[in-house]
Amino acid sequence: MPIVACKNIRKTYRQGDIEVHALRGVDLSVDKGGFIALAGPSGSGKTTLLNIIGGLDACDEGSILLDGDRVDQMTASKLADMRLHKIGFIFQAFNLIPVLSAEENVAYVMLLQGVPARECRERARSILDDVGLADKYGRRPHELSGGQQQRVAVARAIVSNPSIVLADEPTANLDSETGRGLLEMMREMNENKDVTFIFSTHDRMVMEHARRLVRLRDGQIVDDANHPVQ
């Protein structure tokens, strides 16, 4: 059974008289353990699709099944619970709470999940070790480089073993070398910890790291292919 199954998703934004068809009938199904890139030019609907899968935005038509639950039929409170327990989010920027250290940023979500404080700490540290930030536990976001901040965001997204991690252009604000490093690290987590990733990008280099590449254009999927693993 796929971990995510989207059927015929449509989303239209209205701004005054203008209608923008952000998604026009998207079908997408993702298996557990996948490492999938959503590629497409700016405005093609990548963010909209990720937001709808993650329950941050509602679609106008269609259905989304996440881990067996209908995302499109959930109440706001159920959606919050789902995001807290089943989804890890990584955004392009501003992923971290500025007043919390790297360790605290990672631990905070677990704390909200009700994990005991002590365990939060231990798990936060161990995951920060995994993403290569063993000596940066106590750093505040502004004391970290952009790449390091994104690593903290990845650590936070995967620390409580979510069903899926949704990453919206996680490398867009990084130089290509740092971006490559982050991608490789995500790929490592995908393989070693069996975390499912869907990430969007319009960067060719990033696409090449994906095991499956889904191309979007004007709110429709135009290509969907499994990549050979390098």
Partner: peptide, 16 residues
């Protein structure tokens, strides 16, 4: 504002 948006995306409920 963006921080509160982030917290909500991470699963924080309005009441929290």
């Amino acid at each position: 504002m963006r921080e509160f948006g982030l917290l909500k995306a991470l699963g924080m409920k309005p009441w929290w």
